[in-house]
């Protein structure tokens, strides 16, 4: 009987821990910073954070079909707005948690110049970008190429990843000589650690606003609201800056 009592006690404890858990769906480009922010959040509050990373489009489909998430950190502003309109997101809970920066990056050191002139020289076979239809970073890359008048020249050399996370292996493996990535993918502790890069001036494309929203499943979870507050706080901001978000 003692065994049974311990068993029941363990079950109840599990239940208590569950109440202070936040289940967060996070866009692929923000996955690494989110892990660091979550670690600090757990240390500060004791609430557990479960992160599920994926592309915003896939997370949207999962949320619409009942996925157990309390909050969404999207890669864009459109998806949270859509969820709000459709009543799956809590009205008025949306905010821009990060603004992404675009970078042209190559694994080869000293190859990409700091003005992006390498694009016009065209001495490459493949330029990797995220699918502009699906990923805000891909759409931003298209805008930059349009402004430079290079879009139609370079289009035949595009290799596309379904999301920005998928573009990274194309460029890191050297199969694509260079590619448009999110700054957060190559920046660690405020530095670009490898290869060569052009950090695209923010004025060359519309800002990549990434919005967060509280989902209806998290409406009654105080830990979920705490998490979103924490995301706006100075601690989270400094993590984001280290990864190159504005």
């Amino acid at each position: 009987m003692a065994f049974l009592r311990i068993f029941v006690a363990l079950l109840l404890m599990g239940d208590v821990a569950h109440a202070a858990e936040v289940r967060v769906a996070v866009a692929a480009n923000f996955s690494t910073p989110a892990q660091q922010i979550a670690a600090a959040f757990t240390a500060a509050t004791g609430h557990k954070v479960t992160l599920s990373a994926g592309s915003t489009g896939k997370l949207y489909a999962q949320i619409k079909n009942g996925a157990p998430f309390d909050a969404l950190l999207a890669a864009d502003a459109e998806t949270p707005a859509k969820l709000e309109t459709e009543g799956v997101g809590v009205a008025g809970s949306r905010f821009v948690y990060a603004t992404g920066r675009l970078i042209l990056w190559s694994k080869r050191a000293g190859w990409v110049d700091d003005q992006g002139e390498v694009l016009a020289k065209g001495a490459f076979e493949h330029l990797a970008i995220a699918d502009p239809k699906l990923a805000p970073y891909g759409a931003a890359a298209i805008e930059v190429l349009e402004k430079r008048g290079l879009l139609e020249t370079l289009r035949p050399r595009f290799v596309q990843g379904e999301n920005i996370a998928q573009v990274h292996p194309f460029v890191v493996s050297g199969n694509a000589e260079l590619g448009f990535l999110a700054l957060s993918q190559v920046m660690r502790e405020g530095k670009i650690t490898e290869g060569s890069a052009w950090i695209v001036p923010a004025g060359l494309h519309r800002p990549i606003h990434q919005e967060a929203i509280l989902l209806t499943k998290g409406r009654n979870n105080p830990a979920a609201r705490d998490w979103l507050d924490h995301l706006r706080g100075e601690m989270a901001r400094s993590v984001m800056r280290a990864f190159g978000y504005l």
Binding site: S55, G57, K58, Y60, A61, H126, A128, D131, K133, L134, F158, V159, Q160, G161, E162, N163, Q166, P169, F170, A176
Partner: peptide
Amino acid sequence: MIGGNIPNATQVVSVQIYAHVEAL
């Protein structure tokens, strides 16, 4: 992983369906 979604070279149906789903 190895296709790069290039029309008429590597953009096969399964990837195309996935892209449609992602684009809602």
